[in-house]
Design a protein around this nucleic acid. Structure first.
Lengths: 217, 217
DNA sequence: CAATAATAGTGTCAATTTAACACTTAGTCA
DNA sequence: TGACTAAGTGTTAAATTGACACTATTATTG
């Protein structure tokens, strides 16, 4: 009756780093696709919820927890894994830029951050998963506060605008952006300023609802 | 390694009938939850794609094929099925009103169409699945042509408007609706009219892109 | 201490989109 | 031919969106 299917979760882990949207990939050490880059992922444990499985994989690969994680889609073509029948529940996660730096040291060899425009060939159907995750992220910028999940505790409006510009791959009008984002009522001034180099200091903001992604308008 | 998980698909089948949005449920004949109503669904076959599995279930329960079917979400809480570990990939399908009539005869006993506001208690976590499907459908009305999937070959603008009103559960302005829907450019006049009773005949329309759901604006 | 360099911060107006609203038309039947 | 019933049709005000350029603040340097 059960037809003996293996179930895994794979995660598309996004962050913003070096002015670019990056994805975490892992170089496979075993067959199949040995040596190819792949999404982090792993088998569902016996008594584990699928969200927990994804969270566990995320923690194992990046050390981070408590970040935004959302189920994306389930991929189950019978031939997607040459080893046998493997259904994978794909997730995507968003990690604030700061947290990534902390992890830069781990495992240096087998793990890498890649820009969307310099992706290597991927194992399995991971390119399809990644493409779908990217489309979802871009779409969600327009009707949710998902972008805030990339921000550190405190950030400037220019920082936040940069996230939108990097993901959208096009410039955003500064005044309209500020009007819009302040009008949302989801961020507030911390009262502090960031001064850097020889320029006018920028006001710092924080998100009011740290780990909620709101649907807007 | 595979932890022996069973995989099923469950389907939320929507149609519009008797001025209401209805969902197809099946009365369970076996334990667990014997006698309770449940979503149609079944186990994934060995060499079957998951979409095909859902389509097969849909055809088995309703006799229809070639209708709109979309993957919804995957539910995998370890305790969601008392028999053991079952991960279910939930889908939802939209069936045009006309096609339903044809199936009214089948299996009369064990199958039933239920309005959203007169739902019985459901087996497993099927109420959560159904709620999510309903939310998705309502959301998609606003940014896609998904509602057209409920329409027969030919329909009037009033027919189409009724679909929006039934799903939204609120009246829609007739003139604004017509302006909007004609402006989309996704339907065209057939040239024919429907005359019924003692009223002015209504122009008939058809969708231009039969089995595509477009994302709009 | 004045000039410069670099980013932060700010408002208006036109264009577009959305939302509200009521009467005429075409047909059937009595 | 009058009455009934749903079909069909435009205008206007309000709200939203999008385009656009200058002043403010700081640190550094001559």
């Amino acid at each position: 009756m059960s037809s003996n299917v293996s179930v895994t979760t794979d995660i598309v882990i996004f962050t913003i780093r070096d002015e670019a949207l990056k994805i975490l990939l892992i170089r496979r050490g075993a067959k199949p696709y040995k040596g190819r880059w792949a999404l982090p992922g792993g088998f569902l444990h016996a008594e584990e919820d699928i969200d927990d499985c994804a969270r566990r994989e995320l923690r194992e690969e990046t050390g981070v927890s408590g970040v935004y994680l959302e189920q994306l889609y389930t991929f189950g073509h019978p031939k997607r894994d040459p080893r046998g029948r493997v259904v994978t529940i794909a997730y995507y996660a968003l990690i604030p830029s700061e947290r990534v730096q902390l992890q830069a040291a781990t495992d240096a060899e087998a793990v890498g951050w890649f820009s969307m425009d310099e992706l290597p060939r991927l194992a399995f159907d991971h390119d399809a998963i990644l493409t779908m995750a990217h489309e979802r992220l871009v779409a969600k910028l327009n009707y949710s506060t998902i972008a805030f999940q990339f921000m550190p505790e405190q950030f400037t409006l220019s920082d936040l605008q940069a996230v939108y510009e990097i993901i959208r791959q096009e410039p955003v009008d500064k005044r309209n952006f500020r009007k819009w984002v302040l009008g949302l009522g989801h961020i507030e001034e911390t009262g502090e300023e960031r001064r850097e180099g020889t320029m006018r200091p920028a006001r710092l903001y924080r998100t009011k609802y740290r780990d909620t992604v709101a649907i807007i308008k």
